[in-house]
Simulated assay, not measured.
Amino acid sequence: MARQDASDLAHRLGRQAEAVCRHYLSNGQRQGNYWQVGDVRNTKGRSMFVRLKDSPNGRAGKWTDAATGEHGDLLDVIRESLGLTDFPDVTDEARSFLSLPHPEPEPAAPRRGVAPAPSGSAEAARRLFAMSQPIAGTVVETYLRRRGITFLHGTGSLRFHPRCYYRPDDGPTETWPAMVAAVTDLNGKITGAHRTWLAPDGSDKAPIDTPRKAMGDLLGAAVRLGVPGSVMAAGEGIETMLSLRQVLPEMAMAPALSAAHLAAILFPSTLRRLYIVRDDDPAGDGARDVLIERTNAEGIEAIPLSPALGDFNEDLQRLGIDALRAGIRVQLAPEDVARFITRAA
């Protein structure tokens, strides 16, 4: 088959990227503008991301496995998920799939005078963040303080929405208060948002099946806490990084929201040392290993930071801030102890 014909097939598959993923990568699920699955062979997990819509960062149907560095298009997905070895069999399967009807999701009804933003899009994320309010005096602040997080200076990337929509897999749409975090690229542009739905009194997360969800373009981006310079820390959860910030209040932090997103995070040009904040689980180990390889390739020093328990918020709540500070101090580069941690003592 001519290269141009293969390219045309891949482009046509990209226009139905979500339908392709639901069919050939059935062990995954949609997260924002991506389909997330273990790998191109349809293994359960969250390491591989398939772009579902065209964006300035890439075409729909392009995918990357953050754990292995593999990448490709939807023809590769068909080949690997079905175990096909001959390329004509791959193209025959693609043509067969494209001949089937795949209805588009019905668009949401627009508000009067406002053009609708596609559900889960970066524009929808920007609108949600714009409609939210600062966290001071809200149940978001209550929720964080109950988790031992009291230093909230410089958390403008976090906001509060009093009635944020939650759509369960089955059943009617609900509304819950939520912590809304802006996900930004290296230029500070909002590309996505992360929602943590909360109990109305802020005592815990909301009693729903999936109290955390992301939307928009997430790959390579992160929630930003502080302005990165030559040194920063990157990890998974927002609460984990806010806990670390209790003892390192002037170090820039970047919650990437999951182990797979952490492995794919992009580095600012000024970065010379990256602290990799890992959760104590196999996914955290995998993200750490991928990041160490990537930082080494770019001449950036990588230093893992490990919790005593499951994550740093658990350390903060169960062991206390003094124990957390002592555990972090011995893991930092000596020059960073004086630069960052002594100011929190």
Rank of each mutant, 00 (worst) to 15 (best):
L75Q: 03
N313W: 04
G284T: 03
M253W: 00
W63I: 08
P249K: 05
R288E: 12
N296Q: 13
L262Q: 08
P101T: 03
T91F: 08
T196R: 04
E104S: 15
L82K: 11
L309I: 10
F87M: 10
D209L: 15
S306C: 10
L262H: 05
V114L: 12
G284M: 04
E301A: 12
A199R: 07
Q4D: 15
A108K: 12
H161C: 04
A222Y: 06
S121Q: 09
F87S: 12
I208G: 00
E301R: 14
R79F: 07
H23L: 05
T270L: 05
W176A: 05
R294T: 01
D5F: 15
N33Q: 14
A2I: 08
W63S: 04
L244I: 08
A109V: 15
I149Q: 02
H71K: 10
G310D: 11
K205I: 10
I300E: 01
N42F: 11
R15V: 10
W63G: 05
D204Y: 09
A259F: 03
S243D: 08
G237P: 03
L25K: 00
A178R: 01
P211E: 02
H11Q: 13
S26K: 11
V183K: 07
K53I: 08
Y34Q: 11
T184F: 08
D285H: 07
S96R: 14
G229Q: 09
T142F: 07
G327M: 04
L84C: 05
M215N: 02
E174M: 14
A66E: 06
N42M: 10
V114Y: 12
Q331P: 01
E123F: 07
H161Y: 06
G72N: 04
D5R: 15
F97T: 00
A199N: 11
A199T: 07
K62D: 12
A345Q: 14
T240P: 02
A345E: 15
A125V: 09
R146W: 11
S258R: 00
T210C: 10
S121M: 06
W197M: 09
C164A: 14
T150Y: 04
R22V: 10
L219K: 04
P249A: 12
W197E: 03
G171S: 08
A94P: 00
A263Q: 03
R30S: 07
R59M: 13
T68M: 06
